[in-house]
Simulated assay, not measured.
Amino acid sequence: MTALSSSERDQIVGLALAAIGAALFATKGIFVKLAYAQGLDAVTTLTWRMLLATPFFIAMGSFAYRDRRAGRGRHAKRPVPLRSVCGAVAIGVLGYYGASFLDFLSLDLITAQLNRLVLLTYPFMVLILGAVLFRRTLKPAVVAAALLAYLGIGVIFGHDIVIEGETVVAGTLFALSSALAYALYQLFAKPLIDTLGPRLFTAIAMASAAGVVFVHFLFSHKFASLAIDLEAFQILLGLALAATVAPVSLISAAIGMVGAERTAVFGNISPILTIILAIFILGEPFTLIHGLGTALVICGILLFTRLTIQPKSTAEAG
């Protein structure tokens, strides 16, 4: 049997890391729903997530800055522009506070399944915003893929609104707003990541968002509201580590090994895993209507991925 080359091993490991990272990202909605079942609200849950996760990202950014100063990595010896740091602060608040807060509000009103499917459509918004803001070409086939995915969401939305009522409208709007905020984050983050490197950018963005989250909490809650029991803490620890720190780290490593495009393909498994977990852990319903809507969304996403993926990625981890 022929031994694998170093490059082939890196490819296998990278794809495995991408798959595990996508699977862990799928648990986010489950952990949030479990936290709500413990009596926590969106702001308190988000605050605990930041308290537990941000130190890891700051440490990651510190190591990245040290490597940069020491002459290691793609950004070796490059200065850290103040303008890029300020940009990372602003984009971090948009992506890690704005998008996350809207996402958590959504999860309080709709199922984890519908929430995940709506959020999965953010790449469509990235392309549409790129076409509107930067006059980039938008292919008709890509528009058709987006319409197919949103048709699937509409099928589930129409079913759930009959059963759950107006909360489905508000929850879906929150999820769409979260996806839009994250799409804007993706659109404007790339040049900053190119300048700062992904690890340093993420550390600055996460720390900035954490500061805004803490201020939000202090203005809307008493400090004593952070007191929680052991079971709630275990759930929030899982949210911070298993659904935030671990997948972000694994996805970053995967991008470095196999490229951003191939890594992104594995994001398509995330809603399927969320649905399975939501059914068996949360007891959420899953009917033939949900199955039809989910199939349409996933088909739209797969078609979109096929139409937009580049044949070879040049993305690198910084």
Results as ranks from 00 to 15, higher is better:
Glu8Asp: 15
Arg9Ala: 13
Val13Thr: 10
Leu15Gly: 11
Ala16Asn: 12
Ala22Tyr: 06
Ala23Trp: 09
Ala26Trp: 09
Ile30Asp: 02
Phe31Lys: 02
Leu34Val: 04
Trp48Leu: 08
Leu52His: 01
Ile58Cys: 06
Ile58Trp: 11
Gly61Ser: 09
Asp67Gly: 09
Arg69Gln: 14
Arg69Ser: 09
Leu82Tyr: 02
Leu82Arg: 13
Leu82Gly: 07
Arg83Cys: 07
Val85Pro: 00
Gly92His: 04
Val93Lys: 05
Leu94Thr: 12
Gly98His: 09
Asp103Thr: 07
Ser106Thr: 07
Ile110Phe: 07
Ala112Asp: 05
Leu114Thr: 09
Asn115Glu: 15
Val118Asn: 01
Val118Gly: 02
Pro123Ile: 02
Pro123Gly: 03
Phe124Gln: 00
Ile128His: 08
Ile128Tyr: 13
Gly130Pro: 07
Ala131Cys: 01
Val132Ala: 15
Leu133Lys: 00
Arg135Val: 03
Arg135Met: 07
Leu138Asn: 00
Pro140Leu: 03
Val143Thr: 14
Ala149Thr: 03
Ala149Asn: 04
Ala149Arg: 00
Ala149Ser: 15
Ile153Met: 01
Val155Ser: 05
Val155Phe: 03
Ile156Val: 04
Gly158Thr: 01
Asp160Lys: 05
Ile161Pro: 01
Gly165Gln: 05
Gly171Arg: 05
Thr172Arg: 03
Phe174Cys: 11
Leu176Ala: 14
Ser178Asp: 06
Tyr182Gly: 05
Leu184Trp: 06
Gln186Met: 15
Phe188Trp: 15
Lys190Cys: 05
Pro191Phe: 14
Asp194Ile: 02
Thr195Cys: 09
Gly197Ser: 11
Gly197Ile: 09
Leu200Gln: 06
Phe201Asn: 00
Ile204Asn: 00
Met206Leu: 12
Ala207Arg: 02
Ala209Pro: 05
Phe223Leu: 15
Ser225Gly: 09
Ala227Trp: 14
Leu230Ser: 13
Thr244Ser: 15
Ala246His: 06
Pro247Ile: 07
Val248Arg: 02
Val265Glu: 13
Phe266His: 02
Ser270Met: 14
Ala278Val: 06
Ile281Met: 04
Leu282Lys: 12
Gly283Met: 06
Pro285Thr: 14
Ile289Ser: 15
Ile289Cys: 06
Ile289Asn: 06
Gly291Tyr: 12
Gly293Tyr: 05
Gly293Gln: 03
Gly293Leu: 03
Leu303Thr: 13
Phe304Cys: 05
Arg306Asn: 15
Thr308Phe: 11
Ile309Arg: 15
Gln310Pro: 01
Ser313Phe: 06
Ser313Glu: 13
